Amino acid sequence: TPAEQLLSKCPWKEYKSDSGKPYYYNSQTKESRWAKPKELEDLEGYQNTIV
């Protein structure tokens, strides 16, 4: 779907730490963070409005 294509192009991906806590990693900037990036939230919100 178009929304899945947008998400696949987003540099932010969700991973799980050893303790199972989700964290987010940007493959372009090599940045990681615990809080979900706004860019990823926006894309997921867009995906939910299409489905």
Rank of each mutant, 00 (worst) to 15 (best):
residue 28 Q to T: 08
residue 38 K to A: 06
residue 45 G to Y: 09
residue 39 E to G: 05
residue 51 V to L: 11
residue 12 W to H: 09
residue 41 E to T: 07
residue 41 E to N: 09
residue 35 A to F: 06
residue 38 K to V: 08
residue 9 K to W: 02
residue 32 S to Q: 10
residue 24 Y to G: 01
residue 6 L to W: 07
residue 23 Y to I: 05
residue 10 C to I: 11
residue 22 P to S: 10
residue 31 E to A: 04
residue 50 I to A: 14
residue 5 Q to V: 07
residue 23 Y to A: 04
residue 48 N to L: 02
residue 8 S to M: 03
residue 48 N to I: 00
residue 10 C to W: 08
residue 29 T to Q: 01
residue 31 E to F: 00
residue 30 K to C: 15
residue 37 P to L: 01
residue 36 K to D: 05
residue 40 L to G: 06
residue 39 E to V: 05
residue 6 L to C: 05
residue 44 E to L: 07
residue 4 E to A: 05
residue 29 T to F: 00
residue 37 P to R: 01
residue 39 E to R: 02
residue 7 L to G: 15
residue 24 Y to W: 12
residue 26 N to V: 01
residue 2 P to V: 11
residue 50 I to K: 15
residue 45 G to V: 12
residue 28 Q to K: 06
residue 6 L to F: 10
residue 13 K to F: 06
residue 27 S to N: 10
residue 4 E to L: 07
residue 46 Y to G: 08
residue 23 Y to K: 04
residue 30 K to S: 06
residue 25 Y to M: 11
residue 13 K to L: 09
residue 26 N to Y: 00
residue 35 A to T: 14
residue 38 K to P: 12
residue 37 P to G: 03
residue 2 P to D: 15
residue 33 R to V: 13
residue 36 K to N: 00
residue 49 T to G: 13
residue 41 E to P: 02
residue 46 Y to K: 14
residue 17 S to Q: 04
residue 10 C to H: 14
residue 7 L to W: 14
residue 4 E to V: 03
residue 30 K to W: 00
residue 18 D to H: 09
residue 38 K to S: 09
residue 34 W to K: 14
residue 7 L to H: 14
residue 28 Q to W: 09
residue 1 T to C: 08
residue 49 T to C: 13
residue 29 T to L: 02
residue 8 S to Q: 07
residue 45 G to A: 14
residue 43 L to F: 12
residue 15 Y to S: 02
residue 5 Q to Y: 02
residue 26 N to A: 03
residue 38 K to C: 06
residue 22 P to D: 04
residue 38 K to I: 05
residue 14 E to H: 04
residue 45 G to T: 12
residue 41 E to D: 10
residue 10 C to M: 13
residue 9 K to R: 12
residue 22 P to V: 12
residue 5 Q to E: 12
residue 46 Y to D: 13
residue 9 K to M: 04
residue 43 L to C: 08
residue 19 S to T: 10
residue 47 Q to A: 08
residue 19 S to E: 10
residue 1 T to L: 03
residue 11 P to A: 14
residue 39 E to Q: 14
residue 41 E to Q: 15
residue 44 E to C: 06
residue 10 C to L: 06
residue 1 T to N: 11
residue 14 E to G: 13
residue 51 V to D: 15
residue 45 G to P: 12
residue 8 S to E: 14
residue 11 P to G: 09
residue 10 C to G: 14
residue 20 G to S: 03
residue 18 D to Q: 08
residue 29 T to A: 01
residue 10 C to V: 10
residue 42 D to H: 07
residue 13 K to E: 09
residue 23 Y to N: 02
residue 43 L to K: 10
residue 20 G to N: 01
residue 50 I to H: 14
residue 9 K to P: 14
residue 30 K to A: 08
residue 40 L to S: 03
residue 46 Y to C: 10
residue 12 W to A: 08
residue 17 S to T: 12
residue 12 W to C: 00
residue 11 P to F: 13
residue 24 Y to E: 02
residue 34 W to T: 14
residue 23 Y to E: 01
residue 14 E to V: 03
residue 6 L to S: 15
residue 10 C to S: 11
residue 18 D to K: 08
residue 37 P to Q: 08
residue 51 V to H: 15
residue 35 A to V: 14
residue 24 Y to C: 00
residue 31 E to W: 00
residue 38 K to N: 05
residue 26 N to G: 00
residue 4 E to C: 03
residue 11 P to W: 05
residue 19 S to N: 07
residue 7 L to Y: 03
residue 17 S to N: 11
residue 13 K to D: 06
residue 46 Y to E: 13
residue 26 N to W: 01
residue 9 K to T: 06
residue 29 T to N: 07
residue 35 A to H: 15
residue 15 Y to M: 15
residue 35 A to Y: 04
residue 15 Y to K: 10
residue 8 S to P: 13
residue 48 N to S: 08
residue 34 W to V: 15
residue 34 W to R: 13
residue 12 W to D: 13
residue 44 E to Y: 05
residue 15 Y to G: 07
residue 5 Q to C: 05
residue 12 W to I: 07
residue 25 Y to N: 01
residue 6 L to K: 11
residue 37 P to D: 04
residue 23 Y to C: 05
residue 20 G to A: 00
residue 32 S to W: 09
residue 26 N to S: 00
residue 19 S to M: 09
residue 20 G to F: 00
residue 23 Y to P: 02
residue 27 S to D: 03
residue 8 S to D: 14
residue 37 P to W: 00
residue 15 Y to W: 00
residue 40 L to C: 06
residue 20 G to L: 01
residue 41 E to R: 10
residue 16 K to W: 10
residue 8 S to W: 07
residue 48 N to E: 12
residue 3 A to I: 10
residue 26 N to T: 01
residue 49 T to Q: 12
residue 19 S to Y: 05
residue 14 E to R: 10
residue 44 E to D: 14
residue 43 L to D: 12
residue 22 P to G: 01
residue 33 R to Q: 11
residue 35 A to G: 07
residue 28 Q to L: 11
residue 37 P to E: 00
residue 27 S to Q: 03
residue 22 P to C: 07
residue 12 W to Y: 01
residue 22 P to F: 07
residue 20 G to R: 01
residue 16 K to M: 07
residue 12 W to F: 09
residue 30 K to M: 02
residue 28 Q to A: 09
residue 2 P to F: 15
residue 21 K to C: 04
residue 19 S to L: 06
residue 28 Q to N: 15
residue 47 Q to Y: 13
residue 40 L to D: 02
residue 33 R to K: 13
residue 41 E to F: 11
residue 50 I to T: 15
residue 45 G to C: 09
residue 27 S to H: 01
residue 5 Q to L: 12
residue 32 S to D: 02
residue 35 A to C: 11
residue 24 Y to I: 01
residue 38 K to L: 05
residue 14 E to D: 00
residue 21 K to G: 07
residue 26 N to M: 00
residue 50 I to C: 14
residue 36 K to I: 01
residue 42 D to P: 03
residue 33 R to T: 07
residue 48 N to H: 07
residue 50 I to M: 15
residue 8 S to K: 02
residue 33 R to N: 13
residue 22 P to M: 11
residue 32 S to V: 12
residue 49 T to F: 04
residue 2 P to H: 05
residue 35 A to E: 14
residue 20 G to W: 00
residue 20 G to K: 03
residue 13 K to M: 13
residue 19 S to H: 04
residue 46 Y to L: 11
residue 1 T to E: 00
residue 27 S to P: 00
residue 6 L to H: 05
residue 3 A to Y: 12
residue 30 K to D: 03
residue 24 Y to A: 04
residue 11 P to Q: 09
residue 30 K to Q: 09
residue 49 T to S: 14
residue 50 I to G: 13
residue 26 N to C: 00
residue 2 P to K: 15
residue 1 T to W: 00
residue 47 Q to G: 10
residue 4 E to I: 05
residue 30 K to T: 04
residue 24 Y to T: 02
residue 4 E to G: 07
residue 29 T to E: 04
residue 3 A to R: 11
residue 46 Y to Q: 10
residue 44 E to V: 06
residue 41 E to G: 07
residue 3 A to H: 15
residue 50 I to L: 13
residue 48 N to R: 08
residue 20 G to D: 01
residue 35 A to K: 14
residue 25 Y to K: 13
residue 35 A to N: 13
residue 8 S to L: 06
residue 6 L to T: 15
residue 45 G to S: 13
residue 28 Q to V: 13
residue 3 A to E: 14
residue 7 L to Q: 01
residue 46 Y to H: 15
residue 7 L to D: 15
residue 19 S to R: 07
residue 30 K to R: 09
residue 16 K to L: 09
residue 17 S to L: 05
residue 15 Y to F: 10
residue 7 L to M: 14
residue 18 D to C: 06
residue 1 T to F: 15
residue 10 C to R: 04
residue 49 T to D: 13
residue 31 E to M: 07
residue 21 K to N: 02
residue 43 L to R: 12
residue 40 L to Q: 03
residue 27 S to V: 12
residue 32 S to A: 06
residue 39 E to A: 08
residue 25 Y to R: 04
residue 19 S to I: 00
residue 21 K to L: 13
residue 50 I to N: 15
residue 36 K to W: 03
residue 34 W to M: 14
residue 27 S to M: 15
residue 36 K to Y: 03
residue 25 Y to D: 00
residue 7 L to R: 14
residue 22 P to I: 12
residue 33 R to A: 08
residue 11 P to D: 01
residue 34 W to F: 09
residue 8 S to T: 11
residue 23 Y to D: 05
residue 16 K to I: 08
residue 7 L to N: 11
residue 8 S to C: 08
